[in-house]
Structure formats: structure tokens, C-alpha cells
């Protein structure tokens, strides 16, 4: 074997992996924060000092104290307990929407990317869905079909699907031009098998990155829906609901909005940071370089 691997001096070293070097610590902190939020949500009944729902008018709008670390809300409920319970809905919605949007988007995108006939129709529908402002659409769906966690999930998923579809489709469209796909064709490999074996794996890395953004966006939209009063029942403590109830007291007691706001922001921030870290590692453009 004389043709040993040539030294690839790499006149263009990928910039991706090092790009986040300055943020080296950020993904780790983000992961820890997210893990804490998840644990808090799971063990909410064990760790919360008070019932998040039972009202106690005597204790309304109390300042922080040893018993109520963040104070109480207008119905005398412990803010800390409510914020901890609030993580539950956010995470469930975030996870549920991500799974739904990625699975449906992947399926539609694969078909659309590989079958030209389906493509024209599917993409027009996706363009139409993209044109409708997602929050408007979601509020409309929720208010029409009734507010439950399922309708909220569906309402948030529908506007997310087109983004996943477009991503998957564009990857499939470029991957199907790869000679190894043509090689598979000339080896007599069937279309479904080419899709499954040669095309779909190309989408995994970018989809992982996209999934984190879908998750962050879903949690955000859920909070907006709750905040506008179009989310899950106002009796359920969600970050958006807590803030919505606190709106009229904002000048009196801003912390009622700022604490759940902080929790929400931290949650979305850590997911986004993890997504950025994943992209730096997995970015398809970086991975495509020959070596």
C-alpha cells in the first residue's frame, strides 16, 4: 500500500469547534441549571415548603420571610412553591412539543425531500403555516378547542412543524445529490431503504440542534399563552399564569412577575446554550469538510 493517507494540512481548519472556546464553561453551567430545574419539577411535592394552590387570604402579598422565601401572592400562596411547580408544565410542554414536532417534521420532510410530486404540495402548505404568526395561531386554536394541556401542546406544535420540515427537506435535497446515494440506486437499493439508510442519518445531527431550539421556543410560547390567558387552566401554576395573575400588582410588588420570569428565562437560556454547544460540535457545514 503505497497510497497512505496524505497529510491533510487543512488550509481551512474548521472554525466551529473552537468557536465556542470562550464559552467553554457555559454549556456545563447550562446543563447543571437545566438538571436542577428538571429535578425540582420532578420532586416538586417533596421539596416545596407549601401547597401551591391552597389559598390563604390572611397571608396575601407578604414580603419574603423564613417561611415564605420569595413572599406570597395575591391569594396568600407561597411564590416559591408555585414557581417550582410551574416548571412542570413548561418542561412537559417543551418536551412534548419537541418530540411531536421533530417526529412529524422528520416524516414530512423526508417524504417531501425525496418525492418531487409530494414536495410541491407539502411545501406550499408549510409556507402557508409559516406565514401565520405562531402566537396568534396558537391562541386561536386554544381558545377554539378549549384550554387543556393537549390543545396547548398541539397549538404550539403546529407552527413549529414547518421549520423542522424545511430543515429536513433541505438536508435530504442536498444529500440525495451525493454520489453514495446514486451508488445505492445503482446497487438496486429500494427508495424507502435509501431514505431510511442513506438519507435519514444525515438529518440527526442538525435535528438535535434544531430540537433544542424547538424546545426553547415551545416553552416560551406556552408562557406567552398562559400570560395572555390562553394557556392551560389558570388554576394550574405555570410561570405564565403566575405572571398573568401578578400583572395588576406589578407596581406594588414586581417580584411576583420577576421571579417566575427569572425561572422562565433561566430555563430557556440553558436550553439555548446547550443547543449552541451542540451546534458547535455537530454543525453539518463543519462536518461536511472532506476529512
Amino acid at each position: 500500500m503505497a497510497d497512505t493517507t496524505p497529510i491533510r494540512a487543512g488550509l481551512r481548519l474548521p472554525t466551529g469547534k473552537l468557536a465556542g472556546a470562550g464559552f467553554g464553561l457555559a454549556p456545563i453551567i447550562a446543563a447543571v441549571v437545566l438538571l436542577l430545574i428538571v429535578l425540582a419539577a420532578i420532586f416538586a411535592p417533596q421539596i416545596t415548603p407549601h401547597d401551591p394552590i391552597a389559598q390563604n387570604p390572611v397571608l396575601r402579598l407578604k414580603p419574603p420571610s423564613a417561611d415564605f422565601p420569595l413572599g406570597t401572592d395575591a391569594y396568600g400562596r407561597d411564590l416559591l412553591s408555585r414557581v417550582i411547580y410551574g416548571a412542570r408544565i413548561s418542561l412537559i410542554i417543551g418536551l412534548g412539543v419537541t418530540v411531536l414536532a421533530v417526529v412529524l417534521g422528520l416524516a414530512i420532510g423526508l417524504v417531501s425531500g425525496f418525492f418531487r410530486v409530494a414536495d410541491a404540495i407539502v411545501m406550499r402548505i408549510m409556507d402557508g403555516l409559516m406565514a401565520m404568526p405562531s402566537v396568534l395561531l396558537a391562541i386561536a386554536i386554544v381558545s377554539l378547542f378549549g384550554a387543556s394541556i393537549w390543545t396547548v401542546m398541539a397549538a404550539i406544535t403546529i407552527p413549529e412543524i414547518p421549520r423542522v420540515v424545511r430543515l429536513v427537506r433541505s438536508i435530504v435535497l442536498s444529500a440525495r445529490e451525493e454520489p453514495y446515494v446514486e451508488a445505492a440506486l445503482s446497487l438496486g437499493t429500494s427508495m424507502p431503504r435509501i431514505l431510511w439508510r442513506h438519507l435519514m442519518p444525515n438529518t440527526f445531527a442538525p435535528l438535535t440542534v434544531q430540537a433544542t431550539y424547538v424546545c426553547a421556543s415551545a416553552i416560551l410560547t406556552e408562557a406567552i399563552l398562559s400570560f395572555l390567558g390562553a394557556g392551560v387552566s389558570t388554576e394550574t401554576p405555570t410561570w405564565g399564569n403566575i405572571m398573568a395573575e401578578a400583572r395588576i400588582y406589578f407596581q406594588l410588588k414586581p417580584s411576583l412577575i420577576l421571579w417566575p420570569g427569572l425561572a422562565l428565562s433561566l430555563c430557556i437560556l440553558s436550553i439555548n446554550l446547550l443547543g449552541d454547544a451542540a451546534r458547535d460540535v455537530l454543525d453539518p457545514r463543519m462536518g461536511k469538510r472532506k476529512d
Binding site: M243, P254, L258, L262, L264, S265, I268
Partner: peptide, 14 residues
Amino acid sequence: VLGFSIPVFVIGYL
């Protein structure tokens, strides 16, 4: 990344 992550209404109230 902060602009992406902090919801509009939280920024508004801040």
C-alpha cells in the same frame, strides 16, 4: 443568546 432566551414580556416588565 440573552435576547433569544428572555421572553418579551419579561424584558418588558424589567
